[in-house]
Amino acid sequence: MKSRRSSGQRQQWTIRELEMVERYYHKIPLRELQALHLPNRTLPAIRLQARLLGVQRPNSRHWREDELELLRQHYPTHTNEELRARFLPNRSDAAITHKVMRLGLQKAPLSWSNDELELLRLHHGRLPLRELQQRYLPKRTLSAIETRIVYLGLGDHSDDWTEHERALLIRNYPNMRIKQLRSNFLPERSLRSIAAAAQRLGLKSNYHWPDDELDKLKRLYGTLPSRELQQRYFPGRTPAALRSMAYLLKLSKPN
C-alpha cells in the first residue's frame, strides 16, 4: 500500500488545474474560480500559480478619467447600486464609496417636507439619531438624516460619540469591514457616520489603501525589515498587513 502524502508536502498541479487558471483567472472572481474549478487549492496558491503562469487579472485599482467623470456626474443623483448597474459595472460598492470620499462628492439634497424639516430642527440634539429616525422620520435613512443636518447647518453629528463607541471603533476598524463593524458593535450608527468618525480619528483600514500609501509601499518594500518599515512609514498598519498587500501587489524583496 502506498503511503499517504504528508500534509506538509505540496501537491503537484495537474494539467487540468493549470488550464483552469489560464482560462478563468482573469474572467471570474477568485473565490468563484476556487469553488467551481479548484476546490483543493487555497486562494494564495491560485494567485501564486497565476503569477508563475504569467496570467494577470485586470488592474481595477486605477480609475480612468472617464470613470471619474461618470462618478462626478451621476453620484449626486444615483445610489451606488444604480451607479454599478448603469455606469460602473467593474467597480464594487466599497470601491465607489472609497473614491467618493476621496473626491469629496456629496449627494444632491432630496426634497423634504416642511413637517419633516420642523421635526428635525425640533428634535436634533435631543435624541440619539436612531431614535429620532424611528420615532419621527421613519421614511428617511440615517445617512439621509445626517446629510440634511449638515445641509441645514445644524451640526455634523460628530460630537455625540461616546467614549465606549470610540473605543470600539479604534479597536475594530482596522481589521473589520464597516458593514460588519456596524452590525456587530455600532448598530446605532450609519455607515457614513462610522467612516467619517474613523477619518477624524486618523484610523486606517487594512481593507482600504489610499494611492499614496500604495505608492510608498511599492517604493520602500524590501528596503527595511517589515517591523521597522511599519514603525517608520506605516504606523497605522500592522507588519502583517504590509506583507499581505506586498503579496497582492507582487512585490518582492531585493536579493
Rank of each mutant, 00 (worst) to 15 (best):
R135V: 11
P44T: 13
A45I: 01
S226H: 08
R4Y: 00
E82L: 10
L103W: 06
Y233G: 03
R243P: 00
Q9N: 14
R84V: 15
R200I: 08
D115W: 07
G202R: 00
G222N: 07
L142W: 01
S3L: 10
H123D: 05
P29L: 10
L217D: 01
R51V: 04
I96D: 04
R31G: 04
L53Y: 07
W13D: 02
L110S: 14
I145Q: 02
P44H: 08
M245L: 11
F185R: 05
Q73F: 10
N40F: 02
T162E: 04
D160V: 15
D212E: 15
R47H: 05
Q231K: 14
R57D: 00
R243I: 14
L248F: 10
L169W: 09
L53G: 03
A85I: 06
S111M: 02
E82T: 13
Y207C: 11
Q133K: 06
R166V: 15
Q199E: 13
M20K: 13
R86W: 14
N40L: 08
H62F: 00
M245S: 01
S60N: 05
A241D: 05
W13T: 09
N206T: 01
P225V: 07
L129D: 03
Q230M: 09
D93W: 12
S3I: 09
E146Q: 14
A95V: 12
A95G: 14
S226T: 13
N175H: 15
L68I: 07
P187M: 11
R148V: 01
E69N: 13
N175W: 05
F185K: 04
R126Q: 15
N184L: 14
L36T: 00
L36E: 06
S6D: 12
L203P: 05
R16T: 14
R166N: 11
K250Y: 07
L248V: 10
E32I: 02
R237M: 01
Y221Q: 01
L224W: 09
Q34N: 02
R72M: 10
G54K: 06
H164D: 09
T223G: 08
Q34L: 06
L88K: 04
A167D: 13
L217F: 03
L30I: 14
E67P: 02
A108G: 00
G125M: 06
H62V: 08
Y151N: 12
Q49D: 02
E19R: 04
L70H: 04
V55R: 11
Y75G: 08
Y25N: 09
L83G: 05
Q134W: 00
D159K: 14
F87Q: 06
H78Y: 11
L70G: 04
L142G: 09
E188M: 12
K27Q: 14
G153P: 11
M20V: 05
P187C: 12
D66N: 02
R237K: 03
